[in-house]
């Protein structure tokens, strides 16, 4: 009885707007409203797969997002373990702050800096020419190099944030485990393998499951600010593609269809990973 107001709120504000999803199946015209617009069934969804540009975009999204997720999982875990082994608090704290800092910068800012330093005449190329005597590399204009550039820069910006979560878990491990391991004669490396990692596992599973939901999110802000016609073939993702095509046209139906499609895929993936986590690691997330 007491939770009734909250329940009503949830229904009104969370489930009510879902009526708008109907737009995905309509040729929506704002002045005709959702009930008045023409019903066109799955045409909007067909459009997503109709054109070679949009299927290419879906493919690019998957590649970029999946690699981002994998790299974005492994590196922070690795860094968190390394960092937790540092005994000098000052050094530890300053490294932690330094790698965490870029997380607060917006992509617009970072993209501006990147275009500058990754340019043919930028500092990175200067350094490379100086050290190895190679020709300047066009990082942002080369379809082959665009994805790695995107992934590495995303990693640089964001790994500090996930690292902090893992660090917190490591700090929370009961010291008596380590003591016991030490008495048993375990080396530091063995302690990491048999104490630290297993203790982190639940958190790793939670984060992995949640990030699977992002498998169709390759990072609009980042790519939108960095891509250009030379790298459309490898860098154009669903979000940038939809942005370009619906900004021009005010295509509500199509936009909603893409949104719904993305949520659906994420939903299915989350369900699957939830099951796997439960079956394989006997861990219930929700």
């Amino acid at each position: 009885m007491l939770c009734l107001p909250a329940l009503v709120c949830v229904i009104i504000f969370s489930y009510g707007p879902m009526v708008g999803l109907l737009m995905a199946f309509e040729d929506y015209k704002p002045w005709q409203g959702i009930s008045g617009s023409a019903w066109i069934g799955l045409d909007n969804f067909k459009r997503i797969f109709d054109y070679e540009e949009s299927t290419q975009a879906i493919y690019n999204t998957l590649i970029i997002a999946v690699i981002k997720i994998i790299v974005g999982m492994i590196v922070p875990i690795f860094m968190a373990i390394l960092l937790s082994e540092i005994r000098m608090m000052g050094v530890k704290k300053s490294i932690q702050t330094l790698v965490y800092l870029p997380h607060f910068l917006s992509w617009v800012t970072i993209a501006g800096i990147m275009i500058d330093i990754l340019g043919l005449d930028g500092s990175i190329n200067h350094m490379l020419t100086h050290l190895f005597g190679i020709k300047p590399i066009y990082f942002l204009g080369d379809p082959e190099l665009f994805r790695p550039t995107i992934i590495i820069s995303d990693l640089w910006k964001n790994f500090g944030f996930s690292m902090i979560v893992y660090l917190a878990v490591i700090t929370g491990i009961d010291p008596s485990y380590y003591e016991a391991a030490e008495i048993d004669g375990a080396t530091r490396r063995q302690q990491i393998r048999h104490v630290t990692l297993p203790s982190m596992l639940p958190m790793i599973i939670v984060i992995a499951t949640l990030s699977l939901g992002n498998v169709l999110d390759a990072g609009f802000d980042q790519i939108f600010n960095l891509y250009n016609p030379l790298v459309y073939s490898t860098g154009d993702i669903i979000d940038t593609y939809v942005y370009r095509s619906s900004l021009l046209n005010g295509q509500y139906g199509f936009g909603t269809a893409v949104g719904l499609f993305k949520s659906l895929v994420s939903f299915i993936l989350i369900i699957i990973s939830y099951r796997i986590a439960y079956k394989a690691a006997n861990y219930k997330i929700f």
């Binding site: 070679e52 073939s233 593609y241 021009l248």
Partner: peptide, 14 residues
């Protein structure tokens, strides 16, 4: 244009 213009412009720029 609503359905195809973006593909055409993308192709053009590329």
């Amino acid at each position: 244009m609503q359905t195809s213009w973006e593909q055409l412009t993308t192709m053009e720029k590329e």
